[in-house]
Amino acid sequence: MSFNNLDTLYRQVIMDHYKNPRNKGTLNEGLTLEMNNPTCGDRIQLHFIIEGEVVIDAKFEGEGCSISLASASMMTQVVKGKSVEEALKLSQYFSNMMLGKETDSDDLELGDIEALQGVQKFPARIKCATLAWKAMEKAIDQEDEM
């Protein structure tokens, strides 16, 4: 048996983020947002500091599968230091990628998130990959309302 099919999903870079998550932890200031995937029990807690429309810092804690935690790690890594507008554009890009839509990356700095492209071939796992991004969008929403 070969691992080819699985390798599409679990590329080395994903497993690296799972094993050595970036930005794992909490922040004492800023905003905190918790989100879960009720169908499977995955849970993520996101901590964001947004100042002057820029994501100054981002951390996460959570329990979940390799895909959801790797995605959270990649997301925090890529949006840190970006403007809110760019962060939302990245989220849109990621969402389109999961849906298999061809999208122009529009000069966006994608970091490692393209490694998750393979998830689109595993429809049951798309929700795992998008959990952190949805939490991020909601956090920015909340910041807007404050």
Binding site: L6, C40, D42, G64, C65, S68, F122
Partner: peptide
């Protein structure tokens, strides 16, 4: 190994199990 990952590997071998709560 998170149960989702276990279930995905099993599924890739045609074996259907439940993962979750």
């Amino acid at each position: 190994v998170h149960p989702h990952d276990t279930a995905t590997v099993l599924d890739s071998y045609g074996v259907a199990v439940r993962a979750g709560h």
